[in-house]
Write a protein that binds this DNA or RNA. Structure first.
Lengths: 205, 205
DNA sequence: TGTACATCAGTGAACGCGCGTTCACTGATGTAC
DNA sequence: TGTACATCAGTGAACGCGCGTTCACTGATGTAC
């Protein structure tokens, strides 16, 4: 995504450099924030010189986009595994599992240094915001399929709108538990109830 | 907040300059985003020279903080008016009104140029994120009072946690309708249902 | 298996530019008598 | 009501610094015969 084929690392040494740059960027995003991170700073932290940076990235934004890609790859893998487990479950179980997915995704982000800061940067930088949108849309469509299957008489568009809201809430909850001292487990329980009740909107009956 | 008393504009001319700087900053935040805005750029747009800037603000962050203050003042006024209307209403009506508050607040932000970008910047800039937290906390406490009044047998802490979630959702919905083409009115209706159902959690009975 | 050459990966050093900020100053407004 | 002075508000011009980026190069790895 955004990276030309010939730029992809080809040798082992090269892959190491590429990863080191991404890791350094993630660290720095967490330490200094989006408005203070710079290409030279990333190079220094990665133990590289600036031209090494430009071998792999067109510019600063390409680096951030690559960081997003790496983060999203992890989430997609998680999502694929989760999807397996939803086969044949009833709608209430699906709702509960959706909350669990949100929680697992939050856990994943917690394990990846700088992950939240990448997402926060996505919100604030116009040139990157479309990446966030795309990711949310993909997730929304996939989850919508699951609910449509179980609510065949309800217009897909109506379900989709609410699933999209659920996705937004899932990310919001993650942010919230990070910046407050609310109990993660209790907020998660609230989320379960919320999603279950969303699966029983009056106009679904 | 963060601005020493002696720095406050005292003459009419001064007030004009101060406002011009804030307006310019809001515009630019919308146009170029948080990582490209600069003090010199703000001055130029406001038709001022840099030292005028430093008469009123310690630095770039003080300017952004002032922008937040101005935004929050508007929201507080809206909130105060809304609070008047909640006197004596039952809990379902309160839930519905809470959704309406979220919608009205979104409308207010829509009318203020750069408002969403101020909030997005708050998320992404470590030095400013506490301002966002404070604002959310104040709102949360005030709304919690209203629900506690109507649910005297439920621990305040439990209610507060869910109101906090509701506040997060309110802002999330606003963001979502801006960046998708989902119908604002329909999402708002979903929000009403959501808040009403949140007012009837199983452990409230 | 060794050598010659092509390609890949990274370095050293610097570029012009705009950033945040400050100095010494002039002009505008308010105040005292 | 006019003048003298104090304070307030903003200017002109520049500072050092780190930014994003690039040039010409060297060393490392892979490939052909």
């Amino acid at each position: 995504m955004g990276m030309s084929e010939f730029r992809r690392p080809q040798q082992q040494r090269s892959q190491k450099t590429y990863d080191a740059l991404l890791d350094a960027a993630a660290e720095l995003l967490e330490e200094v924030g989006i408005e203070r991170i710079s290409s030279n700073l990333v190079c220094e932290r990665a133990g590289m010189t600036p031209p090494a940076f430009y071998r792999y990235f067109d510019d600063k934004y390409a680096l951030l986009a690559a960081l997003v890609d790496r983060l999203m790859d992890g989430q997609e893998a998680l999502f694929a595994r989760w999807l397996e487990g939803t086969r044949g479950v009833d709608i209430d179980t699906l709702a509960r599992m959706t909350a669990e997915l949100a929680s697992a995704a939050a856990g994943l982000r917690n394990d990846q240094p700088g992950a939240i800061w990448i997402l926060r940067a996505l919100r604030a930088v116009p040139r990157l915001s479309e990446l966030r949108l795309q990711a949310h849309d993909v997730t929304t469509q996939a989850i919508t399929d699951l609910y449509v299957e179980r609510l065949p008489h309800v217009p897909r568009e109506r379900i989709m709108r609410r699933v999209r809201l659920g996705v937004e809430i899932g990310y919001g909850v993650d942010e919230m538990t990070r910046e407050t001292n609310l109990s993660r487990a209790e907020v998660f329980e609230d989320l379960v109830h919320l999603f279950v009740s969303m699966a029983h909107y009056p106009d679904y009956a």
